[in-house]
């Protein structure tokens, strides 16, 4: 038994769905790309504590003091 022929409306609806799918996929790629670019250009990002930890900066672990007052590192 053959399926009844599709109405023109169904083709239009399908085209719209495919189009929207592609737009959403492109948007995901865009946000991902933007995130990668922004994060990799941040430099020494240290999460949300805003306190510099010299031990993670290469070459500074020996010379830097172990703890510094927070107001000087903001």
């Amino acid at each position: 038994m053959a399926f009844p022929e599709q109405h023109e409306l169904h083709k239009r609806r399908f085209g719209r769905n495919v189009g929207l799918g592609l737009v959403l996929a492109a948007f995901v790629v865009l946000i991902f790309g933007l995130t990668v670019v922004k994060v990799t250009r941040l430099g020494q990002a240290q999460g949300f504590d805003h306190v510099l930890r010299p031990e993670i900066v290469p070459g500074q672990s020996e010379t830097a003091p172990a703890a510094r007052p927070p107001e000087a590192t903001q």
Binding site: E8, L9, R12, G15, R16, V18, G19, L20
Partner: peptide, 14 residues
């Protein structure tokens, strides 16, 4: 009938 759908706002992606 297609025209009826058109008027009911079934737009294509374009």
């Amino acid at each position: 009938d297609a025209r009826l759908y058109e008027q009911s706002g079934e737009a294509g992606f374009g």
